[in-house]
Design a protein around this nucleic acid. Structure first.
Lengths: 190, 190
DNA sequence: TAGATTTGCCAACAGACGTTGACCAACAAG
DNA sequence: CTTGTTGGTCAACGTCTGTTGGCAAATCTA
Protein backbone atom coordinates (compact mmCIF):
# COMPACT_ATOMS: atom_id res chain seq x y z
CA UNK A 1 0.00 0.00 0.00
CA UNK A 2 2.60 2.54 1.00
CA UNK A 3 4.86 1.54 -1.82
CA UNK A 4 7.16 4.47 -2.43
CA UNK A 5 7.52 5.70 1.13
CA UNK A 6 7.91 3.67 4.32
CA UNK A 7 6.17 0.41 5.04
CA UNK A 8 3.50 0.98 7.69
CA UNK A 9 4.55 -1.03 10.70
CA UNK A 10 2.29 -2.51 13.26
CA UNK A 11 4.36 -0.89 16.01
CA UNK A 12 3.92 2.66 14.81
CA UNK A 13 1.52 3.46 17.61
CA UNK A 14 4.11 2.40 20.16
CA UNK A 15 6.82 4.36 18.41
CA UNK A 16 4.87 7.58 18.46
CA UNK A 17 3.79 6.99 22.04
CA UNK A 18 7.45 6.68 22.99
CA UNK A 19 8.34 9.85 21.11
CA UNK A 20 5.52 11.81 22.73
CA UNK A 21 6.51 10.65 26.19
CA UNK A 22 10.16 11.38 25.44
CA UNK A 23 9.44 14.94 24.33
CA UNK A 24 7.43 15.56 27.45
CA UNK A 25 10.10 14.18 29.75
CA UNK A 26 13.00 15.89 28.02
CA UNK A 27 11.12 19.19 28.11
CA UNK A 28 10.24 18.81 31.77
CA UNK A 29 13.40 17.27 33.18
CA UNK A 30 16.30 17.80 30.80
CA UNK A 31 18.49 15.10 29.36
CA UNK A 32 19.96 13.40 32.40
CA UNK A 33 16.90 13.27 34.60
CA UNK A 34 14.63 12.12 31.81
CA UNK A 35 15.30 8.42 32.29
CA UNK A 36 14.45 5.80 29.71
CA UNK A 37 12.59 3.91 32.39
CA UNK A 38 10.36 6.88 33.13
CA UNK A 39 9.70 7.53 29.46
CA UNK A 40 8.82 3.89 28.92
CA UNK A 41 6.46 3.95 31.87
CA UNK A 42 4.71 7.03 30.46
CA UNK A 43 4.34 5.24 27.15
CA UNK A 44 3.13 2.13 28.98
CA UNK A 45 5.70 -0.18 27.48
CA UNK A 46 8.90 -1.89 28.52
CA UNK A 47 12.17 0.09 28.61
CA UNK A 48 13.77 -2.42 26.29
CA UNK A 49 11.41 -1.40 23.51
CA UNK A 50 12.93 2.06 23.52
CA UNK A 51 16.30 0.53 22.87
CA UNK A 52 15.04 -1.66 20.07
CA UNK A 53 13.34 1.16 18.22
CA UNK A 54 15.80 3.97 18.84
CA UNK A 55 19.09 2.25 19.56
CA UNK A 56 20.09 4.18 22.64
CA UNK A 57 19.24 7.27 24.61
CA UNK A 58 20.97 9.67 22.24
CA UNK A 59 19.11 8.16 19.32
CA UNK A 60 15.85 8.63 21.14
CA UNK A 61 16.66 12.24 21.83
CA UNK A 62 17.65 12.88 18.24
CA UNK A 63 14.36 11.40 17.06
CA UNK A 64 12.38 13.36 19.65
CA UNK A 65 13.72 16.74 18.54
CA UNK A 66 13.64 16.07 14.82
CA UNK A 67 11.11 18.79 14.24
CA UNK A 68 10.12 20.64 11.11
CA UNK A 69 10.41 24.39 11.52
CA UNK A 70 8.26 26.08 8.98
CA UNK A 71 10.56 28.93 8.12
CA UNK A 72 8.89 32.09 6.89
CA UNK A 73 9.99 33.00 3.41
CA UNK A 74 12.27 36.06 3.66
CA UNK A 75 11.09 37.38 0.32
CA UNK A 76 7.50 37.63 1.51
CA UNK A 77 8.06 39.82 4.52
CA UNK A 78 7.99 43.57 4.48
CA UNK A 79 11.26 44.92 5.77
CA UNK A 80 9.51 47.06 8.33
CA UNK A 81 7.55 44.07 9.67
CA UNK A 82 10.58 41.83 10.03
CA UNK A 83 10.89 42.14 13.80
CA UNK A 84 7.20 41.63 14.41
CA UNK A 85 6.98 38.64 12.08
CA UNK A 86 9.99 37.00 13.67
CA UNK A 87 8.69 37.32 17.21
CA UNK A 88 5.28 35.99 16.21
CA UNK A 89 6.80 33.06 14.41
CA UNK A 90 8.98 32.10 17.33
CA UNK A 91 6.18 32.40 19.86
CA UNK A 92 4.00 30.14 17.72
CA UNK A 93 6.77 27.64 17.30
CA UNK A 94 7.42 27.63 20.98
CA UNK A 95 3.89 27.21 22.16
CA UNK A 96 2.59 24.69 19.67
CA UNK A 97 4.59 21.86 21.20
CA UNK A 98 7.30 21.13 23.73
CA UNK A 99 10.09 20.31 21.33
CA UNK A 100 11.86 23.65 21.56
CA UNK A 101 11.56 23.72 25.33
CA UNK A 102 13.06 20.26 25.43
CA UNK A 103 15.82 21.36 23.11
CA UNK A 104 16.62 24.39 25.22
CA UNK A 105 16.67 22.38 28.44
CA UNK A 106 18.93 19.78 26.91
CA UNK A 107 21.10 22.19 24.97
CA UNK A 108 22.25 23.71 28.22
CA UNK A 109 23.79 20.49 29.53
CA UNK A 110 24.37 18.50 26.37
CA UNK A 111 26.75 19.34 23.55
CA UNK A 112 24.66 17.74 20.81
CA UNK A 113 21.62 19.68 21.95
CA UNK A 114 23.57 22.93 21.93
CA UNK A 115 24.74 22.31 18.37
CA UNK A 116 21.25 21.53 17.18
CA UNK A 117 19.94 24.68 18.82
CA UNK A 118 22.68 26.73 17.20
CA UNK A 119 21.83 25.21 13.85
CA UNK A 120 18.14 25.97 14.21
CA UNK A 121 18.68 29.59 15.07
CA UNK A 122 21.23 30.10 12.39
CA UNK A 123 18.84 28.75 9.80
CA UNK A 124 15.98 30.79 11.20
CA UNK A 125 17.52 34.19 11.59
CA UNK A 126 20.49 34.39 9.24
CA UNK A 127 18.52 34.52 5.96
CA UNK A 128 16.32 37.24 7.34
CA UNK A 129 19.29 39.20 8.62
CA UNK A 130 21.03 38.87 5.28
CA UNK A 131 18.03 40.29 3.54
CA UNK A 132 17.57 43.41 5.61
CA UNK A 133 20.78 44.38 7.34
CA UNK A 134 22.94 47.16 5.91
CA UNK A 135 26.18 45.20 5.66
CA UNK A 136 26.02 41.44 4.93
CA UNK A 137 29.19 40.90 6.92
CA UNK A 138 27.30 41.99 10.02
CA UNK A 139 24.48 39.52 9.47
CA UNK A 140 25.79 36.80 11.82
CA UNK A 141 26.17 39.23 14.69
CA UNK A 142 22.74 40.72 14.12
CA UNK A 143 21.18 37.28 13.87
CA UNK A 144 22.90 36.24 17.09
CA UNK A 145 21.55 39.31 18.87
CA UNK A 146 18.05 38.40 17.76
CA UNK A 147 18.59 34.85 18.93
CA UNK A 148 19.77 36.11 22.30
CA UNK A 149 16.57 38.09 22.87
CA UNK A 150 14.25 35.36 21.63
CA UNK A 151 16.03 32.64 23.56
CA UNK A 152 16.15 34.86 26.63
CA UNK A 153 12.43 35.29 26.54
CA UNK A 154 11.91 31.55 26.05
CA UNK A 155 14.25 30.88 28.94
CA UNK A 156 12.54 33.20 31.39
CA UNK A 157 9.05 32.32 30.17
CA UNK A 158 9.04 28.58 29.49
CA UNK A 159 11.93 27.24 31.52
CA UNK A 160 12.72 29.41 34.53
CA UNK A 161 9.10 30.57 34.64
CA UNK A 162 9.65 34.06 35.95
CA UNK A 163 6.27 35.32 37.08
CA UNK A 164 6.00 38.50 34.99
CA UNK A 165 7.40 36.82 31.88
CA UNK A 166 4.85 34.03 32.16
CA UNK A 167 2.01 36.46 32.69
CA UNK A 168 2.85 38.49 29.63
CA UNK A 169 0.24 38.01 26.91
CA UNK A 170 1.17 37.02 23.39
CA UNK A 171 0.40 40.38 21.79
CA UNK A 172 2.06 42.28 24.58
CA UNK A 173 5.18 40.21 24.12
CA UNK A 174 5.22 40.90 20.42
CA UNK A 175 4.88 44.64 20.97
CA UNK A 176 7.73 44.67 23.43
CA UNK A 177 10.17 42.47 21.54
CA UNK A 178 9.48 43.40 17.93
CA UNK A 179 11.18 46.81 18.05
CA UNK A 180 14.22 45.20 19.66
CA UNK A 181 14.67 42.64 16.90
CA UNK A 182 13.89 45.29 14.29
CA UNK A 183 16.69 47.44 15.64
CA UNK A 184 19.14 44.53 15.88
CA UNK A 185 18.43 43.72 12.25
CA UNK A 186 18.20 47.08 10.55
CA UNK A 187 19.72 49.83 12.67
CA UNK A 188 23.11 51.27 11.89
CA UNK A 189 25.88 49.69 13.91
CA UNK A 190 26.00 51.63 17.17
CA UNK B 1 42.43 35.79 67.56
CA UNK B 2 39.30 35.85 65.49
CA UNK B 3 37.09 36.36 68.47
CA UNK B 4 33.94 37.98 67.21
CA UNK B 5 33.76 36.30 63.82
CA UNK B 6 34.46 32.69 62.89
CA UNK B 7 37.19 30.51 64.30
CA UNK B 8 39.82 29.89 61.65
CA UNK B 9 39.81 26.17 60.94
CA UNK B 10 42.73 24.13 59.81
CA UNK B 11 40.56 22.70 57.01
CA UNK B 12 39.75 26.00 55.38
CA UNK B 13 42.10 25.32 52.49
CA UNK B 14 40.29 22.09 51.73
CA UNK B 15 36.91 23.75 52.02
CA UNK B 16 37.73 26.45 49.52
CA UNK B 17 39.36 23.94 47.19
CA UNK B 18 36.14 21.95 47.22
CA UNK B 19 34.08 25.05 46.53
CA UNK B 20 36.32 26.13 43.66
CA UNK B 21 36.18 22.70 42.07
CA UNK B 22 32.42 22.55 42.59
CA UNK B 23 31.85 25.89 40.89
CA UNK B 24 33.93 24.82 37.95
CA UNK B 25 32.14 21.52 37.57
CA UNK B 26 28.66 22.92 38.04
CA UNK B 27 29.41 25.64 35.50
CA UNK B 28 30.82 23.19 32.99
CA UNK B 29 28.52 20.21 33.40
CA UNK B 30 25.31 21.26 35.15
CA UNK B 31 23.91 19.77 38.31
CA UNK B 32 23.45 16.10 37.45
CA UNK B 33 26.66 15.51 35.55
CA UNK B 34 28.79 17.35 38.07
CA UNK B 35 29.37 14.36 40.32
CA UNK B 36 30.66 14.62 43.85
CA UNK B 37 33.31 12.11 42.96
CA UNK B 38 34.60 14.27 40.12
CA UNK B 39 34.57 17.40 42.26
CA UNK B 40 36.46 15.61 45.01
CA UNK B 41 39.02 14.37 42.53
CA UNK B 42 39.54 17.92 41.24
CA UNK B 43 40.04 19.11 44.80
CA UNK B 44 42.40 16.16 45.44
CA UNK B 45 40.50 14.82 48.44
CA UNK B 46 38.13 12.03 49.26
CA UNK B 47 34.44 12.30 48.27
CA UNK B 48 33.41 11.72 51.85
CA UNK B 49 34.95 15.05 52.85
CA UNK B 50 32.45 16.83 50.68
CA UNK B 51 29.67 15.17 52.61
CA UNK B 52 31.18 16.05 55.95
CA UNK B 53 31.67 19.70 55.15
CA UNK B 54 28.55 20.37 53.11
CA UNK B 55 26.10 17.70 54.18
CA UNK B 56 24.96 16.57 50.77
CA UNK B 57 25.06 17.55 47.13
CA UNK B 58 22.38 20.19 47.45
CA UNK B 59 24.22 21.76 50.35
CA UNK B 60 27.39 21.86 48.30
CA UNK B 61 25.58 23.54 45.45
CA UNK B 62 23.99 26.08 47.75
CA UNK B 63 27.41 26.94 49.18
CA UNK B 64 28.98 27.11 45.73
CA UNK B 65 26.54 29.69 44.41
CA UNK B 66 26.35 31.79 47.55
CA UNK B 67 27.77 34.80 45.78
CA UNK B 68 27.72 38.43 46.70
CA UNK B 69 26.26 40.57 43.94
CA UNK B 70 27.44 44.09 44.39
CA UNK B 71 24.27 45.84 43.41
CA UNK B 72 24.70 49.31 41.96
CA UNK B 73 22.91 51.92 44.05
CA UNK B 74 19.84 53.06 42.09
CA UNK B 75 20.10 56.56 43.49
CA UNK B 76 23.55 57.08 41.99
CA UNK B 77 22.68 56.31 38.40
CA UNK B 78 21.54 58.86 35.88
CA UNK B 79 18.20 57.84 34.46
CA UNK B 80 19.51 58.11 30.93
CA UNK B 81 22.46 55.86 31.71
CA UNK B 82 20.39 53.16 33.34
CA UNK B 83 20.50 50.71 30.43
CA UNK B 84 24.19 51.14 29.83
CA UNK B 85 25.05 50.79 33.52
CA UNK B 86 22.96 47.64 33.86
CA UNK B 87 24.53 45.89 30.89
CA UNK B 88 28.03 46.79 32.07
CA UNK B 89 27.32 45.55 35.56
CA UNK B 90 25.95 42.24 34.36
CA UNK B 91 28.80 41.63 31.96
CA UNK B 92 31.28 42.26 34.74
CA UNK B 93 29.43 39.98 37.10
CA UNK B 94 29.28 37.26 34.51
CA UNK B 95 32.90 37.34 33.48
CA UNK B 96 34.61 37.74 36.82
CA UNK B 97 33.81 34.17 37.85
CA UNK B 98 31.83 31.12 36.85
CA UNK B 99 29.16 31.33 39.52
CA UNK B 100 26.47 32.82 37.34
CA UNK B 101 27.21 30.42 34.52
CA UNK B 102 26.90 27.57 36.97
CA UNK B 103 23.67 29.00 38.26
CA UNK B 104 22.23 29.34 34.79
CA UNK B 105 23.21 25.81 33.82
CA UNK B 106 21.74 24.40 36.99
CA UNK B 107 18.68 26.63 37.04
CA UNK B 108 17.53 25.07 33.82
CA UNK B 109 17.28 21.56 35.24
CA UNK B 110 16.96 22.21 38.95
CA UNK B 111 14.08 23.88 40.72
CA UNK B 112 16.20 25.34 43.52
CA UNK B 113 18.59 26.82 41.00
CA UNK B 114 15.73 28.39 39.07
CA UNK B 115 14.37 30.01 42.22
CA UNK B 116 17.75 31.39 43.17
CA UNK B 117 18.19 32.81 39.68
CA UNK B 118 14.77 34.39 39.85
CA UNK B 119 15.62 35.92 43.20
CA UNK B 120 18.89 37.36 41.94
CA UNK B 121 17.34 39.01 38.94
CA UNK B 122 14.43 40.35 40.89
CA UNK B 123 16.77 41.95 43.37
CA UNK B 124 19.00 43.28 40.62
CA UNK B 125 16.50 44.79 38.26
CA UNK B 126 13.35 45.55 40.22
CA UNK B 127 14.73 48.47 42.25
CA UNK B 128 16.11 50.06 39.13
CA UNK B 129 12.87 49.56 37.27
CA UNK B 130 10.91 51.01 40.14
CA UNK B 131 13.06 54.10 40.08
CA UNK B 132 12.75 54.94 36.40
CA UNK B 133 9.65 53.38 34.91
CA UNK B 134 6.56 55.52 34.36
CA UNK B 135 4.09 53.34 36.29
CA UNK B 136 5.36 51.38 39.34
CA UNK B 137 2.81 48.66 38.64
CA UNK B 138 4.65 47.92 35.40
CA UNK B 139 8.01 47.55 37.10
CA UNK B 140 7.94 43.72 37.38
CA UNK B 141 7.19 43.28 33.70
CA UNK B 142 9.85 45.75 32.68
CA UNK B 143 12.39 44.12 34.97
CA UNK B 144 11.52 40.72 33.55
CA UNK B 145 12.03 41.99 30.02
CA UNK B 146 15.47 43.27 30.98
CA UNK B 147 16.24 39.93 32.60
CA UNK B 148 15.18 38.12 29.45
CA UNK B 149 17.63 40.07 27.29
CA UNK B 150 20.51 39.84 29.72
CA UNK B 151 19.95 36.14 30.38
CA UNK B 152 19.51 35.51 26.68
CA UNK B 153 22.86 37.06 25.96
CA UNK B 154 24.49 35.07 28.75
CA UNK B 155 22.88 31.92 27.42
CA UNK B 156 24.05 32.35 23.86
CA UNK B 157 27.45 33.69 24.87
CA UNK B 158 28.57 31.67 27.88
CA UNK B 159 26.54 28.48 27.69
CA UNK B 160 25.50 27.65 24.13
CA UNK B 161 28.55 29.50 22.81
CA UNK B 162 27.09 30.78 19.57
CA UNK B 163 30.01 31.93 17.48
CA UNK B 164 28.98 35.56 16.81
CA UNK B 165 27.80 36.08 20.39
CA UNK B 166 31.12 34.85 21.74
CA UNK B 167 33.09 37.02 19.36
CA UNK B 168 31.25 40.16 20.33
CA UNK B 169 33.49 42.52 22.27
CA UNK B 170 32.48 43.93 25.63
CA UNK B 171 31.93 47.49 24.44
CA UNK B 172 30.12 46.36 21.34
CA UNK B 173 27.80 44.29 23.48
CA UNK B 174 27.07 47.24 25.70
CA UNK B 175 26.27 49.46 22.76
CA UNK B 176 23.89 46.90 21.30
CA UNK B 177 22.05 45.94 24.48
CA UNK B 178 21.95 49.20 26.39
CA UNK B 179 19.27 50.84 24.23
CA UNK B 180 17.14 47.73 24.53
CA UNK B 181 17.18 47.76 28.32
CA UNK B 182 16.72 51.50 28.34
CA UNK B 183 13.59 51.14 26.26
CA UNK B 184 12.26 48.26 28.37
CA UNK B 185 12.71 50.39 31.47
CA UNK B 186 11.65 53.86 30.42
CA UNK B 187 9.60 53.77 27.21
CA UNK B 188 5.85 54.16 27.26
CA UNK B 189 4.03 50.87 27.23
CA UNK B 190 3.73 49.93 23.53
C1' DT C 1 -1.71 -25.40 8.68
C1' DA C 2 3.59 -24.69 9.18
C1' DG C 3 7.15 -21.56 9.47
C1' DA C 4 9.09 -16.97 9.81
C1' DT C 5 8.84 -12.41 11.57
C1' DT C 6 7.41 -8.91 14.52
C1' DT C 7 6.03 -7.09 19.08
C1' DG C 8 6.39 -7.21 23.64
C1' DC C 9 7.77 -8.52 28.59
C1' DC C 10 10.98 -10.20 31.97
C1' DA C 11 15.17 -10.68 34.40
C1' DA C 12 19.53 -9.49 34.70
C1' DC C 13 24.08 -7.28 33.83
C1' DA C 14 27.83 -3.83 34.80
C1' DG C 15 28.81 0.62 36.00
C1' DA C 16 28.11 4.99 38.31
C1' DC C 17 25.90 7.52 41.68
C1' DG C 18 25.14 9.76 46.59
C1' DT C 19 25.98 8.54 51.01
C1' DT C 20 27.68 6.15 55.35
C1' DG C 21 30.58 4.45 59.07
C1' DA C 22 34.81 2.44 60.62
C1' DC C 23 39.38 3.52 61.06
C1' DC C 24 44.02 6.03 61.16
C1' DA C 25 47.24 10.23 61.64
C1' DA C 26 48.05 14.83 63.14
C1' DC C 27 47.41 18.10 66.38
C1' DA C 28 45.84 20.63 70.94
C1' DA C 29 44.97 20.77 75.86
C1' DG C 30 45.53 18.90 80.49
C1' DC D 1 52.38 11.30 78.37
C1' DT D 2 47.56 10.92 77.99
C1' DT D 3 43.26 12.30 76.14
C1' DG D 4 40.02 14.41 73.14
C1' DT D 5 39.33 16.71 68.79
C1' DT D 6 39.97 17.49 64.08
C1' DG D 7 41.35 16.31 59.11
C1' DG D 8 41.53 12.74 56.16
C1' DT D 9 41.34 7.88 53.76
C1' DC D 10 39.20 3.46 52.69
C1' DA D 11 35.83 0.22 51.70
C1' DA D 12 31.39 -0.63 51.29
C1' DC D 13 26.07 -0.03 51.17
C1' DG D 14 21.86 0.39 48.43
C1' DT D 15 19.91 2.45 44.50
C1' DC D 16 19.42 3.92 39.96
C1' DT D 17 21.20 4.09 35.37
C1' DG D 18 21.58 2.52 30.27
C1' DT D 19 21.65 -1.57 28.05
C1' DT D 20 21.34 -6.68 26.71
C1' DG D 21 19.57 -11.31 25.62
C1' DG D 22 16.19 -14.78 26.14
C1' DC D 23 11.52 -16.17 25.69
C1' DA D 24 6.34 -16.06 24.93
C1' DA D 25 2.64 -14.48 22.24
C1' DA D 26 0.74 -12.28 18.33
C1' DT D 27 0.86 -11.58 13.55
C1' DC D 28 2.19 -12.18 8.80
C1' DT D 29 3.57 -15.34 4.78
C1' DA D 30 3.32 -19.46 2.24
Amino acid sequence: MTGTTQQARRSDATRTAILAAARERFAADGYERATIRAIAKDAAIDPSMVMRYYGNKEGLFAAAIDLDLRLPDPAEITVDDMGRTLVRHFLDLWEENEVLTALLRVGVTNAAGAERMQDIFKRQTLPLALRVCPDPAEAPVRAALCASQVLGLALTRYVLRFGPAVGLGRDETVEWLAPTLQRYLTAERP
